[in-house]
Nucleic acid binder design. Structure first.
Lengths: 354, 354
DNA sequence: TTGTAAGCGTTATCAG
DNA sequence: CTGATAACGCTTACAA
C-alpha cells in the first residue's frame, strides 16, 4: 500500500508518536528530530490517511451536502458559496445530488455517516415529517429552503413568500392585472411559498386570482416554455408573466419570441432567483435576487459555528430567513436602456471570482 | 458517541462479527439470528461508520473531484455527469474547487488522501510538469481537459482544437473574413487549443490572422463584454465574433446590444461549450457542443473501471478525446426561424432529469 | 453457524 | 522530549 506514518518513523529513526507530533505540531519536539522527520516525510511524499485520522480524532473535517439536483446555475452557485466557506475553515465537501424523495436522502445520509461532521440538506420536495424521519440525530444539520421541521436542526431559507409578493406588487404597480404565474413543482415547498406570495399580493391589491392564469413549469426551461404556450393559448392571455424561477423565465421568453410576442412591450416577464446569466438575457431579466452563493456561505458558516461549539444548537430549532430583493431590469418595461461604458452587471465581478 | 456495531451486537446477543456478516451479507448466518440482528439495527437506527469501514476495507467507495472553479453552468453540468455515474456505482463524491495553481491542487489532493479511491482533476491553468509533480502516485487519476501529462494517469479531453477549427470554418463559409476572436486566459490549456484551432482554420482558408482581432476575455461574461467593446472600437471592426466559450459569447451579445449592433444581421456571434442556456439566448447561440455532462460521466466511468481492475491503467498513459460538434442556431445568421410547436431544445429533457 | 482476535493508519495518554 | 500502547469502528481470517 501507500506510505504510512510507520514508514516515516522507521526511516527517521523515531516512533510514530513523534512523527505525529511533528506533523501536527501537537507537542514540542527537539528541533533536530523535527527537521529530520520533516525531511523524511517530504522525501517519501507522505500525507496522512484521512480515514485513519478521522477515526482517531473522531472528526472528519468534512461537510456533507445533499441536493435535489445539480442542473442549472442555481445549484452551482449554492455549491460555490458552500465550498468557499468550507475551504476557508479547512473542511472538505462531500456532495450528493439527485435526491428527490426521503428514501434517497436517507441513503445519502447513511453513506455520509462517519465521513462528515455536519450536514447541509436541501429537500424542497419532501414534507417536513418525512424529512425529520430520515435526518440523522447525532450530527449538526442545516436545512436549506425546506419546510420547517420538528427536529434539532438549523434552517436557512430565502424569503420566497416576500420576494414573490414584492414582484407581483411591482407588476401590479406597472398596471398589470392579468398576470400569468408559472409555478414550480406541486409538492415543492419553495414553489408553494412563491405561489402564496404572488396570491397574497393579488389579494392585497383587490385582484381576484384567476385559476386559468396559474400554470405549472417544474422549475425547468422546458416547463416554462410549455406553460407560456398554454398561457398564450388562453382566450384572454395575460399581459405579464411571472415565472417563479429564472430558468422558467428563460423558457418563457423563448416561447414568446417564437410566438412573435415582444418583451416587454407586448408582454412583461419576470423571474425569481436572479441567476448570474439573468442580466445578459435579452431583454435583461427582472428578477428577485436571493443571493444564492451567499445563502450557501451562510449555511456553511452556521454549520461550522455549530461544530466549533461542539454542542447542539442553542435553540432546539433555529430558523433563519434571508431577504429577497427585487432586481429591476428591462424585461418588464421599466428600463434605463442607456448604454453604459462601465460594465453594468454586479453579479460576478473579478473579486468574487477570487 | 453514536451507535456502533458493538451496541447492535450486545443488544442482539451476538458478536460484532456476526452483525457485520448480516449487514454485509458476507457470510451465511442463521435466519433467526439474522432477523434479530436486523431488527436491533433498525431500532437503533444503526449505520456503519464509513471512516472505520474505509480503513478496514482499504477502499472508500468515494471519488474525488478537483476543479478550478464552480462558477457558471459548465462545472455544474460536469459535476452532474460525474455524480450520476458515481452514484450508479454506489460511490460518494468529494468535491473541491477554486484550485488554479499547483499548490492548491496539491493541498486538495492531500486532503483527499485516504478518503477517496480515485481522483478526477481538472486543471487547465496548470502546466503539465507542475501537475505531474503534485498528482499522487498510488491512486488512479483521470485528468480532464488538461495538458498531456507525463504520468500514470488517464486523460479525457474535448476536441478543443477541432471544434474551434470547425466553427471558424463555418464562419468563413458564411463569408466572414474579419473574425474577432475572444480567447480565454493566457495560460489556460483549453484556451490555447481553441485559439490554435481558430488560427488553423484561418490559415487553411488563406486568411492571414490579424492580431488586432485577437482579444482576451478570461472565460467570463464580463471578459467577453470588455473584449467586445475593444473589438467594436477598432478602426475596422470585425463582422463576426467567435467567443471561445459561451459565457463570453453571452457577454459579447450583451455589449453588442448596448452598442446597438444587431445580431446576427450586423454581427455574427458564436460560442463554445453549448451550455444549457445557449438555445434560449436571443438570438439562440451558435456554439460547439462538447457534451459536458457526458464528459463527466465518461471520466467517472473510466475511473471506476480502473478501480474495478484493481490494477494500474493498462497503458502508462491513455488519452481519450471526445468529439466536439457544431450546433448551428441563429446567432450567425443561419436560421430556421420557424416557430415550432414541439419544444425545440434537446438539452435537458425530462428523462435526463430522471 | 458463530466467536475471537488481528489488523487498517492515526492520535492521544501515560510513562519514562 | 520521546516511546509504548490503547483506543477509534469495522472487516476478516482463523478457530471452534
Amino acid at each position: 500500500m501507500s506510505v504510512t506514518i510507520r514508514d516515516v518513523a522507521r526511516l527517521a529513526g523515531v516512533s510514530v508518536a513523534t512523527v505525529s507530533r511533528v506533523l501536527n505540531a501537537s507537542a514540542p519536539v527537539r528541533e533536530a528530530t523535527r527537521l529530520r522527520v520533516l525531511e523524511v516525510a517530504r522525501q517519501l511524499r507522505f500525507s496522512p490517511n484521512s480515514a485513519a485520522r478521522t477515526l482517531s480524532r473522531q472528526r472528519a473535517a468534512a461537510l456533507g451536502v445533499i441536493l435535489p439536483d445539480l442542473y442549472g446555475e442555481f445549484f452551482s452557485e449554492l455549491l460555490r458559496g458552500i465550498d468557499q466557506e468550507a475551504q476557508r475553515a479547512g473542511h472538505s465537501l462531500l456532495v450528493s445530488s439527485s435526491h428527490h424523495d426521503s428514501r434517497g436522502i436517507g441513503a445519502a445520509v447513511r453513506a455520509m455517516r462517519g465521513r462528515v461532521d455536519g450536514l447541509m440538506v436541501m429537500a424542497p420536495d419532501v414534507s417536513a415529517p418525512q424529512l425529520a424521519d430520515v435526518l440523522p440525530a447525532g450530527i449538526p444539520t442545516v436545512l436549506l429552503n425546506g419546510p420547517a421541521v420538528e427536529a434539532d436542526v438549523y434552517e436557512i431559507a430565502v424569503d420566497n413568500f416576500g420576494g414573490a409578493r414584492a414582484m407581483t406588487r411591482h407588476l401590479i404597480g406597472l398596471g398589470h392585472v392579468r398576470i400569468g404565474f408559472i409555478a414550480g413543482a406541486e409538492r415543492n415547498h419553495e414553489a408553494c411559498e412563491r405561489a402564496r406570495g404572488h396570491e397574497a399580493a393579488l389579494r392585497e391589491a383587490g385582484v381576484h386570482p384567476d385559476p386559468s392564469l396559474h400554470a405549472r413549469g417544474e422549475f425547468t426551461e422546458k416547463g416554462g416554455w410549455r406553460a407560456t404556450r398554454e398561457l398564450l393559448a388562453l382566450p384572454q392571455p395575460p399581459t405579464a408573466i411571472f415565472a417563479s424561477n429564472d430558468a422558467m423565465a428563460v423558457g418563457a421568453m423563448s416561447a414568446l419570441r417564437e410566438a412573435g410576442v415582444h418583451v416587454p412591450s407586448e408582454m412583461a416577464v419576470a423571474g425569481f432567483d436572479d441567476i448570474p446569466v439573468a442580466p445578459f438575457l435579452d431583454p435583461p431579466l427582472t428578477s428577485v435576487r436571493v443571493g444564492i452563493a451567499a445563502l450557501g456561505e451562510r449555511a456553511a458558516a452556521l454549520l461550522l459555528a455549530a461544530l466549533a461549539e461542539r454542542s447542539p444548537p442553542d435553540a432546539p430549532s433555529r430558523r433563519d430567513v434571508l431577504p429577497a430583493e427585487l432586481v429591476i431590469r428591462s424585461s418588464c418595461g421599466v428600463q434605463n436602456a442607456m448604454p453604459t461604458s462601465e460594465f453594468p452587471f454586479s453579479h460576478h465581478t473579478e473579486d468574487t471570482l477570487q
